[in-house]
């Protein structure tokens, strides 16, 4: 049985897939990130440094969105990268892209933190002051960006109610049940709006795996 390097083959496969639809800087970046993450998974710190450079604005940005506190966001971002280094050897291409994997980790961690903070804060009287407008901010922040980029056009194509539900769930870190409560709609409806909104975004972005 000969020793083979499976990673080499994956890069070849990824390169071929790229060529078949024509090169673009987005694809170059995608494959740069994939190889960097694979390198990081084999203990290469320089490769990990490239992963950081390619993804830290996204990670820090989404974490900041969810946790809202800059100092805490920085702390969570650091934790995300230490965890990413630790589990990089377990990255599996067949489970989606490197960017998707990293975004998932970052969002999950931010959400978990906010939820544990929330349960702590529920016992706290300060919660009373905050309860009035916890989600207005989130919606406003996103609406501020509505004149930007393809994403914004896509978000704008969602119905108002779908946009609200997706935004609250993702950027607000809410469960669909919480979204239901906040929007005063049945939880089944909240779930459906999130789903329909995300399907529309997926199709609009041309995501297919």
């Amino acid at each position: 049985m000969t020793e083979v390097n499976p990673l080499r083959r994956i890069r070849v496969a990824a390169d071929r897939a790229g060529q078949s639809v024509g090169p673009s800087s987005e694809q170059d970046q995608t494959s740069a990130l994939t190889s960097a993450l694979i390198g990081a998974g084999r203990g290469d710190e320089e490769a990990f440094s490239r992963v950081y450079d390619l993804t830290s604005p996204m990670v820090h940005g989404v974490v900041l969105k969810v946790v809202r506190d800059p100092a805490m966001a920085e702390e969570v971002t650091q934790e995300v990268y230490l965890e990413l280094w630790r589990i990089a050897p377990r990255f599996q291409l067949d489970r989606g892209s490197a960017r998707g994997w990293i975004a998932t980790m970052a969002h999950r961690r931010a959400v978990d933190l906010v939820r544990s903070e929330q349960s702590r804060r529920r016992r706290d009287e300060r919660e009373g002051e905050r309860a009035d407008r916890p989600f207005d901010h989130v919606v406003e922040d996103v609406v501020d960006r509505l004149d930007r980029s393809k994403l914004d056009r896509s978000l704008a194509r969602l119905s108002e109610t779908q946009r609200e539900a997706v935004t609250l769930a993702y950027y607000g870190g809410k469960t669909y049940r919480e979204v239901g409560v906040l929007l005063d709609i049945p939880e089944g409806t909240a779930k459906t709006r999130i789903r329909d909104g995300l399907i529309k975004l997926r199709d609009d972005f041309g995501v297919s795996t």
Binding site: V59, A106, F205, T209
Partner: peptide
Amino acid sequence: RETAAILA
């Protein structure tokens, strides 16, 4: 998840 990464 890929869609969410674009949101991120």
